[in-house]
Amino acid sequence: MNHVLRYLFFVFVVYPMTLILIGLNVRRRELLPQAGPALIVANHNSHLDALTLISLFGLKRLRYVRPVAAADFFLRNRLLGWFSTRVIGIIPLDRAPKGTRSDPLAGIVAALERSEILILFPEGTRGEPEQLAEFKTGVAHVAKRSPETSVTPIYMHGLGKSLPRGEALFVPFFCDIFVGEALHWTGNRGEFMDLLNQRMESLAAEGTFPDWN
């Protein structure tokens, strides 16, 4: 990562956008992890999701916070690849690994070993905006391989209205963010996923959101 460019990008572009144009309404900010290794698990509606979640951590923890993002999308050309890895600081994830020799989670596990805070979207795609899809189990594999990692669920609403999939025009709406209690690897994949899905659903049920269709 180019830390100087990254700081400049966040201070002059991302913070004004998330804090002034969008406006974040964060419930229980104190539950955000103070230090890594930690996983932030959130629902995915918009390209703004990762930037918004990173901005929750402020400048002090900025250098330790990185989003996990699809390699096939963000590394599809050199310029986007440079910007994604150097400025936004993504950890690329191969969504359809071929063969068994390479370890698709190696980058994530290594980052957790460096005590970083990673942002993961287990829905796998932005999908239909403002609709919660079922979580894929990759997050359980990560939690199992790094059991000391805390997993903090976060539910977001509003960014899918501001910049949904397939739209390039940004329209301001307030963004509601609900931070949940962290959990750890439970020893069983099914149990862990059930617990995580349960927490996400109860976070989603906290807010009342107007119709948007």
């Binding site: 209205k161 709406f173 107007p210």
Partner: peptide, 17 residues
Amino acid sequence: KEYLSLIPTRRADRRVL
């Protein structure tokens, strides 16, 4: 912005908003 975030809006109206 607060008002538009509170009321039901139509997805088709993003450009109108």
